[in-house]
């Protein structure tokens, strides 16, 4: 494997080898921690100084028919692909932003409650969707969706949604 071949390169000086090893060990420790952290959250808030829309724009938003989003499974972007809910409908808020109404939580589809998540916080992952900008803990604090002040987006409308690659 070329990757390991590359990193196995050791310093020629024997005197510095031990220190290199301990330095390398600390790198290993640090990257292990970084690795462990990156694998857990399942919510990637936009980088500092960037709002949701700007970060969504970096995810190459693709046109998708609203009707094709309905009933999609909404996943947490982690290896185990935890189910967060199902897409119930797509609405436009009074301020014009598009939100995806998710039947959130529950177990096997029972005991869910609708929450509205900004489309810019979500991505398409093949036949499913993912919430990338909020963790499940944050979503749990979302208010239960109330249609007042929103208008449903018709099925034939084309909206744009960002992409993600599979998490594993």
């Amino acid at each position: 494997m070329d990757k390991s071949g590359q990193s196995r390169g050791s310093p020629k000086e024997g005197a510095v080898r031990t220190r290199t090893l301990s330095l390398a060990a600390s790198f290993i420790a640090v990257s292990c921690i970084a690795h462990a952290q990156s694998a857990t959250p399942g919510g990637m808030p936009p980088p500092p100084g960037m709002n949701l829309a700007e970060s969504a724009a970096m995810r190459f938003p693709q046109p998708v028919r609203v009707g094709d989003l309905l009933h999609r499974t909404v996943l947490q972007p982690v290896e185990s692909q935890n189910v967060l809910g199902t897409v119930r409908e797509v609405v436009r808020t009074g301020s014009g932003t598009i939100e995806i109404v998710i039947d959130f939580g529950g177990f096997l589809g029972f005991g869910t409650r609708p929450i509205a998540v900004p489309v810019d916080a979500m991505v398409l992952l093949g036949q499913d969707m993912e919430v990338v900008a909020f963790t499940p803990q944050q979503l749990r604090k979302f208010p239960t969706f109330s249609p007042t002040g929103t208008t449903p987006v018709p099925n034939d409308t084309i909206i744009k949604v960002g992409l993600a690659k599979p998490s594993h």
Binding site: T73, L75, E79, S80, Q81, N82, V83, P166, H168
Partner: peptide, 22 residues
């Protein structure tokens, strides 16, 4: 399996897997 789980929400812990990645 862990590269694309079949049972959503369930994956095998790393120490149970043979092969350090897929």
């Amino acid at each position: 399996y862990d590269d694309d789980v079949i049972i959503r929400g369930f994956h095998f812990a790393k120490f149970l897997r043979l092969g350090d990645w897929a």
